[in-house]
């Protein structure tokens, strides 16, 4: 296997050819915030938090969806990137209805963590207060659209891992929302196997088990990766 060498924030790092920039950053012992990315699912580069600067490139590149190339010099934490990331997180908070205080995911929420990571102490953008609904039609799980950040992890895990394709994104722009089936109540969609993978990988409190109340949700985002590894590399044991 050929190896690519590159530099991340001053650290030299070597990764197998075909690795993403995100993998190279992690190999250097560093990290960038991510929300839509999840190991085991195809990247979509939608949350824009993992954008990094690459010397010689005018554009910022999403680390999750960009292949590392030989000799690249990457910067992951410049003042410019910090500023953009904080604004992106503020936009997430302002476009939905995220009230950590009584959320099922309080304390175990990737959006909440990312807000801390980027130093967001308040949103400079006014809250949009969109009118969104809750779908509690499924016997075991609920979907609270107020907390959805449209990362599409649920869509992808259901399609790529479970193979049921219950979820997709409907509408467009700021009207985008996750739908089950033909925009049906989740509980009425035959394709759903109630496997719960979408709940496991949801980074916020949008998808949750009904028995969970405030701060009781503890997701398992690593499962997508485990399943894919088991399926593709026959590695069932961690």
């Amino acid at each position: 296997m050929s190896v690519i060498t590159l530099q991340v924030d001053g650290h030299d790092v070597a990764v197998p050819a075909g690795s993403t920039l995100l993998q190279a950053i992690q190999a250097a012992g560093l990290s960038v915030p991510t929300l839509c990315h999840l190991d085991g699912l195809d990247p979509v580069a939608a949350c824009r938090l993992c954008l990094v600067e690459v010397e010689g490139s005018q554009r910022l590149l999403p680390a999750c969806a960009s292949e590392a190339t030989e000799g690249q010099v990457i910067h992951t934490d410049t003042a410019q990137l910090q500023g953009y990331r904080r604004m992106a997180v503020e936009l997430f908070f302002a476009e939905g209805n995220h009230v950590c205080a009584f959320c099922v995911a309080n304390g175990d929420c990737e959006l909440q963590d990312v807000a801390v990571a980027v130093g967001m102490d308040h949103s400079r953008f006014p809250y949009q207060d969109p009118q969104r609904s809750v779908d509690a039609s499924h016997p075991r799980f609920s979907l609270d659209h107020n907390r959805c950040i449209l990362c599409t992890r649920c869509v992808r895990v259901c399609d790529q891992i479970e193979g049921a394709h219950v979820w997709d994104v409907a509408e467009r722009g700021s009207d985008c929302r996750i739908v089950a089936g033909l925009d049906q109540p989740w509980g009425e969609v035959d394709a759903c196997t109630s496997c719960g993978k979408c709940v496991d990988v949801c980074p916020t409190g949008a998808l949750f088990a009904k028995e969970n109340t405030t701060a009781e949700k503890h997701p398992h985002p690593e499962r997508a990766h485990q399943l894919r590894r088991a399926r593709e590399q026959q590695q069932w044991i961690r």
Partner: peptide
Amino acid sequence: CGKCVPCRA
């Protein structure tokens, strides 16, 4: 299209 947050929001 609503895919990425800078454009959508």
